[in-house]
Amino acid sequence: MAAIETPTGVLLGRFEPGSPEWEQARGGLVVTATEIAAVMSLSPWQSRFSLWHKKAGLPTPPFEVTPAVEWGNRLEVAVAQKWMEEHQDTEDVEPAGTWRHSDRPWQIATPDQIFMPLTGWMIAPGQLPQLLEVKTSPFGDGWGPDGSDEIPVHYRCQIQWQLDTLGLKTCHVALLVSGHDYREYRIEYDQADAELMRKAAREFLDDVAAGIRPPIDSSDATHQTIRRQPEGREDVDVEIPGPLRDRYFTALDGSKAATAELLGAKSQVLDAIGNGRRAVCLGETVATRTVRDGKTHSLQPAKNRSTT
């Protein structure tokens, strides 16, 4: 398969995700498109703290292949095929592979697909390749209407990093929501965002090289990373400062009250929904009720929510 040329991208190869070759191409002191959101503290899966430990070669929680991840991977081919059926004005839609920037070898991207758009069934002179990203979502939280450029911010970071790495201007996104709601988005390159992320990534890698650890935040990724650092246990007492003790005890007391309040609120919302699917207020989704074997399984809050 002949590689499509890009202005600033150097193709490292097309590797099976998770293979030793794939890991090697993305390893070391580099920032990939799936990691840049964590560098910017915008990732729902990684924190800047957890990514720093990974890059420093320290223990981090293993990647978990959840049912959502598994089925997202399985459906990717079908969703990409749907996009290609809707867009016959393309040439050579193919797996993009793993790329690095020609002048910044620490900038890595592995887009889903790359293709040449056609003009009158021909490739126009000077025409740049374009990218296609395929996503799935259970509820569509954070995704705007079909045809817009409203996508979750962590995916926007990923796409801007891909475009900046390869020197391209346009990325299309094919999304499948709830297994049946197909949508398309078009994202254009934003130079200001790219420069901001580049600067943050370079500073992050410099901190890794210098051993400067990021501050501890309140994310689960950071908590799970800290849990994996100690090896074994010594029967010793460790003195901690008074303010840290007070913060811990205050948080414990507050969490008990918050847990009780949340449980009561969830019960009232579920009671109001009855056998319905969603709770809405003034046209906006508040929460979604999931069902297993005919009974309520869980109440999933909307990610984008507001109070009045």
Rank of each mutant, 00 (worst) to 15 (best):
A3P: 02
I4Q: 04
I4A: 12
E5Y: 06
T8L: 11
V10F: 03
L12V: 01
L12P: 00
E16F: 09
E16R: 10
G18L: 05
G18E: 09
S19A: 14
W22M: 01
W22R: 02
G28R: 03
G28L: 10
V30H: 04
V30L: 06
V31P: 00
V39H: 01
M40T: 07
M40F: 03
M40G: 00
L42W: 03
P44D: 11
Q46P: 00
R48L: 04
L51H: 03
H53I: 03
A56G: 08
L58W: 14
L58K: 13
T66A: 11
P67D: 10
A68E: 13
E76C: 04
E76K: 10
M84G: 01
H87N: 15
D92N: 11
E94F: 02
S102T: 12
D103G: 04
R104D: 14
I108K: 00
A109K: 01
T110R: 04
P111F: 02
Q113W: 15
F115T: 00
W121S: 12
Q127D: 03
Q130K: 13
V134C: 03
K135F: 03
P138F: 09
G140D: 08
G142L: 08
W143K: 02
G144P: 00
G147Y: 05
S148V: 05
E150Y: 07
E150V: 14
I151F: 06
P152F: 10
V153G: 02
R156Y: 13
R156I: 03
W161Y: 04
Q162N: 08
T165H: 04
T165D: 05
T165L: 06
L166D: 03
K169Q: 15
C171W: 00
H172I: 05
V173R: 00
L175I: 11
G179I: 07
H180T: 05
H180C: 07
D181E: 12
Y185M: 08
I187E: 01
E188T: 11
D190I: 01
A194T: 05
R198G: 09
A201P: 01
E203D: 15
D206H: 10
A209V: 04
G211Y: 10
I212E: 14
P214M: 09
P214A: 08
S218L: 11
S219G: 05
D220A: 08
D220Q: 10
A221F: 02
T225F: 03
I226F: 10
R227A: 15
E231M: 12
G232H: 10
G232K: 11
R233P: 06
V236K: 14
E239W: 11
L244W: 09
R245K: 09
R247Y: 14
R247T: 11
Y248C: 04
T250N: 15
L252K: 11
G254N: 13
K256T: 11
A257G: 07
T259M: 05
E261Y: 07
L262G: 02
G264Y: 03
A265V: 13
A265F: 09
K266H: 06
Q268G: 02
L270W: 07
L270E: 07
A272R: 12
I273K: 03
N275E: 15
R277K: 14
V280T: 15
T285Y: 07
V286R: 04
T290H: 08
V291T: 15
R292P: 00
G294K: 10
T296C: 13
H297K: 12
L299K: 09
K303A: 14
R305H: 10
